[in-house]
Structures are given as C-alpha cells and as structure tokens.
C-alpha cells in the first residue's frame, strides 16, 4: 500500500530536518517511494521548509529523475548515449516499446511500468545498458531486456 505524500514528507523531515539544504533528500525520498512527486508532496515540503511552492516545483522540474506526472511503480531507464547506441540500444528500445505498448516516458495503463531514455549511465564498458529501479543491467539484447522487464512485479 502506498503511503500518502504528506506522511512521506513528514517522515523525511524527521529523518533529514527541514533546512533548505535537505530539499533534494526530501524530494528523492518521495520520488523513490511513489515514483513521482505529487503536488500535495510539493505543498507539504514547501510548508515544512518555508520554501515557496513555486520554488520547490522549480527544483523538481529541473532534475530529470524527478517527475511531476505519475509514473509506473517500475522505472526502466535505457541509456541513450553513443556507446549504447552503437551497440544496439535502438533495437532494445523498439523491442520494449513493442512488447509493453508504450512510448519512451510513457507509462503502462496498469501503472506497472514506465520506460525512459536517459543520458550516459556510466556502463559504457558493458553496453548496451539500462537501470531498472536503480539496478544496473548490462550487455543487453532485445530478448534479455524484455525478459528482465517482464519479470518485474
């Protein structure tokens, strides 16, 4: 059961404090737990830290890993930089899109999965690579990638 955003924020404030310099930690906590950062969380953080709502939103919108739109409970980030592209990233992306029926940055209707592309994830020596919920998967083939994603909860 997902916790409500205010609860997560309150938890985060207890853990990190409410100083402005804790904002990234608070946002990361919400983002990791819910896969995205709802308005209610932004408002709760603004209230707790004394930063204006617009400023909190501004920070959220700056960082690629944060999202103000709902995302799936599993997030696949496929590297889109050259070493991975040269080793077949486009076929992997196509295979994933075909199998799961979503475009990049799209989310499946059942809320299970979001697929994103992302710049270099530092796994070029084992390209092509992706992060699935933060865990690295390397030397992918279209079949291997689909199998990994299929196995997600």
């Amino acid at each position: 059961m997902l916790r409500n955003p205010e609860e997560i924020v309150a938890d985060g404030i207890r853990e990190f404090g409410n100083g402005r310099e804790r904002l990234m930690q608070l946002l990361t906590k919400v983002n990791e737990e819910l896969s995205w950062i709802p308005t209610t969380a932004i408002e709760a953080i603004a209230k707790a830290t004394g930063i204006s709502v617009a400023e909190v939103y501004s920070v959220v919108s700056f960082y690629s890993f944060f999202s103000t739109e709902p995302r799936g409970r599993n997030i696949v980030r496929l590297c889109s930089t050259i070493s991975c592209v040269m080793t077949g990233q486009d076929e992997i992306l196509k295979a994933l899109m075909d199998e799961f029926g979503i475009e990049p940055f799209g989310t499946t209707d059942d809320g299970r999965l979001t697929i994103e592309t992302t710049p270099c994830i530092g796994l070029c020596d084992q390209a092509p690579a992706m992060l699935v919920n933060g865990e690295p998967h390397v030397k992918l083939t279209p079949e291997k990638a689909c199998e990994i994603v299929r196995g997600l909860g």
Binding site: I51, S52, A54, E55, Y57, S58, S61, F62
Partner: peptide, 10 residues
C-alpha cells in the same frame, strides 16, 4: 518577499 513565480524546467 512572495516567491510566487520561479524558473521552471531547464
């Protein structure tokens, strides 16, 4: 002293 608007996105 309001902070109603901010720079969004990047």
């Amino acid at each position: 002293g309001k902070g109603i608007i901010a720079v969004l996105n990047r």
